[in-house]
Simulated scan of single mutants.
Amino acid sequence: MAEQQTPSNPPLVSVLIPARDAAETLGETLSSLLAQSFTDFAVVLVDDGSTDETREIAKHFAGHFPKGQFQIVEGPAKGISSALNAGLAVIKSPLVARLDADDLSEPRRLERQVRIMERNPDWLLCGTEVSVIDESGQIIDQMECPKTTVEIRKRLYEKCCLYHPTIMFRRDAVMEVGGYRSQYDGAEDYDLYLRLLEYGKIGALNERLVRYRIHPGQVTAQRGRPYRMMADMVLLAAIARLHEEEEPEFTKDTLAADLSSALRAELKERGFLEITPKVARHMAVRIKRANAKAKRLKGLLFQKNALAGNYKEAAKALMA
């Protein structure tokens, strides 16, 4: 349930922020939005079961935004996709910008993304490059993304190459493909990108417009990097759709129970026929690191590359 109602004429952009126990960083995040050069936007913050002062901080900042342009939505506390879908359900703006409760938008972020989306009506989604910050907010690194829609499409069928807190998308397009899918939490953004690619283009700005915070508690820092195996499952599902095959049917619970076994079984069924050798080898390595038997998969990968005369990849397959 939203604590404030949207105005009768929705703004051009709504910034969608899921938050759970984000009291330490939320104030800085919302301050970065108050500093935006573009002003025709609203904030939809989904409080997804917080037990700290997240809600109180959000209420405080709501008073700094124009009336009706800051909503606090009660999240279902069932994971990131469910929280994002709860926010999308109340948004009426044609454009939605994502931001996490510990990341920062540069002052011209919304302005630059709105402009490029208006100039490219066939783009369904636009990302940006990022500056990496540490827990104290100091810039420690930079991360790039592909520069053209053609390169983005190619790279997305190899790995996720866009940063979720940077994206701006057309709400109608995301709703048309079904929103976020909770069974792929951890790689829910990658799953969304690949489904959108089946209907239109995805672009990116060659500018660092978001400050992306790295800290020990985030998903990408988890031991064994299970999010990468989840991303592999997302990619296999997309490849199945491309070839007009049924995609894997998994629930969030079955994937959480044994993700490595699910990935191994799916690769064993489909083989490596539609996957580049490099991507297939990396999938096999991740299965091995999860302590799942991959002997049969290594044999298939070696055989495929050897028959194709790709002896370098065949040798790497044996060493995986």
Rank of each mutant, 00 (worst) to 15 (best):
E3R: 09
Q4D: 15
Q4E: 15
P7E: 13
S8L: 10
P11I: 13
S14Y: 13
A23R: 13
E24F: 05
S31V: 02
A35W: 14
Q36C: 07
Q36V: 07
F38N: 09
E53M: 03
A58K: 08
A58G: 09
F65P: 11
V73W: 06
E74Q: 10
I80E: 09
A83E: 05
A83L: 07
K92D: 09
L95M: 08
V96D: 04
M117F: 06
E118K: 13
R119M: 09
V130F: 02
I133T: 11
S136A: 10
S136V: 00
S136F: 02
D141P: 00
M143L: 11
K154R: 13
R170D: 01
D172G: 07
G178L: 12
R181V: 10
Q183K: 14
G186I: 10
D189N: 12
L192V: 15
R195W: 11
L197C: 06
I202L: 14
A204P: 04
V210Q: 00
V210S: 03
Y212M: 05
Q222P: 00
T251D: 12
K252C: 09
K252W: 03
D258C: 12
L263A: 11
L263N: 05
A265Y: 04
K268S: 15
P277I: 12
A284L: 15
R289D: 12
R289Q: 14
A292M: 12
L307S: 15
K312Q: 08
A317E: 01
